[in-house]
Simulated assay, not measured.
Amino acid sequence: MGSPCALSLYCESKLQFEDLIAKSLELVNRLEDTYSRFKPESLLSKVNSAAGSDATFPLDDECWQLFNYADSAYKISDGLFDVTSGVLRQVWDFKSNKLPPIDKLEAVVALVGWHKIKLQQDSFSLPHEGMELDLGGIVKEYAADLLASTLRLSGCEFGLVDMAGDIAVVGPHPDHSPWNIAISNPAATTKAIATIPLMSGGLASSGDYERFIMLDGERHSHILNPKTGMPVKGLAGVSVWAPKCVIAGTIATVAMLKGDLAKAWLIDVDCNYLAIDQNGQLDMKN
């Protein structure tokens, strides 16, 4: 999925291990073939290519559920979690150390807006030419959850799925001790600033420290407000753990997009979280 992924599994035999790996690869490849915007034959790429045309696409049950989840996330975040906002990458180049021209930014922001879409399972389409869907903020976390569930149903009792930091627990270690998940220090990403013990469920993190532009001593992160197209200023990072990785990922993403209102929002949704401010100070609820 365009990022390093790993499985940590306890198996009864080499045969069981090989069977679980084969099932895992088949599942992840299927999701990537369907939802990757990098693959021209994926459903998502076909929908994006047909934006603004008369072409429509029927959605299977899984895709329908994912789109409805995106709809719910959009609503509970007051429009900040928007799967049409990936189009902003057209004007933001975080390797250039330059801000995008205002006129180009405004033109792309006009293409953003999940509310512009009429969600229909039998005839889904993007209404305006140039609009795009990017499910990268949902499918990787969903994949972690689905993979963990599939492994459990296949007889694996102890293990962990790591989709580039989006974590889903299959089950604890065989001695019933937790998996200790290290949280990166925004100021020194190769070091841990905290460790979260997980027995079940999922964990996801979001932060402003991996991709950014420095201009006149000010950091402009890759976390963009879909309503303005501009970087959000707030927490340096947040990790959330919940019964499902996809839920944890959505909450973490929205918290980063909330800027200065992030902590109040995290408290309001009553979740388990670790928030890291720009000074490296920690605020944790467990």
Results as ranks from 00 to 15, higher is better:
residue 47 V to T: 02
residue 47 V to M: 03
residue 48 N to K: 04
residue 48 N to V: 06
residue 48 N to M: 06
residue 49 S to Q: 11
residue 49 S to D: 05
residue 49 S to K: 14
residue 51 A to Q: 01
residue 51 A to C: 01
residue 51 A to M: 01
residue 52 G to Y: 02
residue 52 G to E: 05
residue 53 S to F: 01
residue 54 D to A: 12
residue 54 D to L: 09
residue 55 A to F: 05
residue 55 A to H: 07
residue 55 A to K: 14
residue 56 T to G: 06
residue 56 T to I: 09
residue 56 T to D: 02
residue 56 T to V: 14
residue 59 L to C: 00
residue 59 L to G: 00
residue 59 L to H: 01
residue 59 L to W: 00
residue 60 D to I: 09
residue 60 D to M: 06
residue 60 D to G: 07
residue 61 D to V: 09
residue 61 D to H: 11
residue 61 D to S: 15
residue 61 D to W: 06
residue 62 E to R: 13
residue 62 E to I: 13
residue 64 W to R: 12
residue 64 W to Y: 10
residue 64 W to K: 14
residue 64 W to Q: 12
residue 65 Q to H: 12
residue 67 F to N: 08
residue 67 F to I: 10
residue 67 F to H: 07
residue 68 N to I: 05
residue 68 N to Q: 09
residue 68 N to Y: 03
residue 70 A to I: 15
residue 70 A to Y: 10
residue 70 A to S: 15
residue 70 A to Q: 08
residue 71 D to A: 10
residue 72 S to G: 12
residue 73 A to S: 10
residue 74 Y to W: 06
residue 74 Y to D: 03
residue 75 K to P: 04
residue 76 I to P: 11
residue 76 I to M: 14
residue 77 S to H: 00
residue 78 D to G: 15
residue 78 D to Q: 15
residue 79 G to S: 08
residue 79 G to D: 05
residue 80 L to H: 01
residue 80 L to E: 00
residue 80 L to G: 01
residue 80 L to R: 05
residue 81 F to K: 13
residue 81 F to G: 07
residue 81 F to C: 12
residue 82 D to H: 06
residue 85 S to H: 07
residue 85 S to G: 10
residue 85 S to L: 07
residue 86 G to F: 00
residue 87 V to H: 02
residue 89 R to D: 08
residue 89 R to T: 12
residue 90 Q to P: 04
residue 90 Q to Y: 01
residue 91 V to P: 03
residue 91 V to S: 04
residue 91 V to H: 03
residue 91 V to I: 07
residue 92 W to V: 15
residue 92 W to L: 07
residue 94 F to L: 11
residue 94 F to H: 11
residue 94 F to V: 15
residue 94 F to A: 09
residue 95 K to H: 14
residue 95 K to N: 14
residue 96 S to N: 09
residue 96 S to K: 13
residue 96 S to T: 09
residue 96 S to L: 06
residue 97 N to F: 08
residue 97 N to H: 10
residue 98 K to N: 14
residue 98 K to T: 15
residue 99 L to N: 08
residue 99 L to P: 06
residue 100 P to C: 09
residue 100 P to S: 11
residue 102 I to H: 15
residue 103 D to Q: 07
residue 103 D to H: 07
residue 103 D to E: 10
residue 103 D to C: 03
residue 103 D to G: 04
residue 103 D to S: 07
residue 104 K to D: 04
residue 105 L to N: 04
residue 105 L to G: 03
residue 106 E to C: 10
residue 106 E to K: 15
residue 106 E to Q: 14
residue 107 A to I: 00
residue 107 A to E: 02
residue 107 A to P: 00
residue 108 V to P: 00
residue 108 V to R: 01
